[in-house]
Simulated scan of single mutants.
Amino acid sequence: MSQTAAEVSGDGANSSSEPPSETTVFEILSNDRRRFVFHYLKQRDRRVYLRELAEHVAAWENEKPVDQLSSAEAKRVKTALHQHHLPKMDAQGFVEYDRQRETVALADAVSDLEVYLDVVPGGDVPWSLYYLGLSGLGLLALACVSFDLGPAAGVPDIACALFLVVAFLVSAGVHTYLNHAQLRLGSTADPPEVGER
């Protein structure tokens, strides 16, 4: 799986303290397990028990339903969350983790944070390369139309320009839909990258 963080923004409307820096957000969310924690807590929007959180994270990691997890799979994730990931997220102001009660919730500073992933399945290309390629083809088409080369000879300049504008408009529309409807952490049942490995 290849992915890049595409956009991170927080409006901080309901936060009682400053949201973490972009560098901190990228550091915390660079790990799949912590990203799954953030996704689950964004979905629930409440304090959850560590066991519940660990079961869902383990299910996503193993790409199977919670009721099909072995106790070893769930315990391994619970231990790692308890000993490493949640304390780190708590220290960075990302979550509020109560080690004694084993409960966790998103910190106020990140409750409104929106994180978008550019998830790139194996045979696909990232959007940035897609737009770069589309721009290159557009320049080539404009040059062919301008100099009456090849099959573009006789095609009006305005027809070529209109075609390129529509191609970019459709591409941007699809990209926007995917970002806001499917690639935002916490907005879907499963994290965006589950099933793309």
Rank of each mutant, 00 (worst) to 15 (best):
T4L: 10
E7V: 11
A13K: 12
A13V: 14
N14H: 12
S17K: 05
T24R: 09
V25I: 15
L29S: 07
D32T: 06
R33H: 05
R33T: 07
V37M: 07
H39M: 00
Q43N: 08
R44T: 11
L50N: 12
R51Y: 14
A59F: 00
V66M: 04
D67V: 09
L69S: 03
A72N: 14
K75P: 03
R76L: 11
A80Q: 15
H82Q: 10
Q83N: 12
Q83P: 00
H84W: 03
M89G: 02
G93D: 01
Y97W: 04
D98M: 11
E102C: 00
E102I: 02
A105K: 15
A107M: 07
V110H: 01
L113M: 12
V115L: 00
V119Y: 02
P121S: 08
P121H: 09
V125S: 13
W127E: 10
L129A: 11
Y131R: 14
L132D: 14
S135E: 13
G138F: 11
G138C: 09
G138D: 09
L140S: 10
A141E: 04
L142K: 01
L142Y: 01
A143M: 13
F147V: 06
L149Q: 02
P151Q: 05
P151R: 04
A153P: 05
I158T: 13
A159G: 07
L162H: 07
A167L: 11
F168W: 11
F168Q: 06
F168N: 07
L169N: 07
S171G: 08
S171P: 01
S171M: 03
A172N: 15
G173L: 09
V174P: 00
Y177Q: 13
L178R: 10
L178K: 08
H180Y: 13
A189P: 05
P191R: 02
E196R: 08
E196W: 00
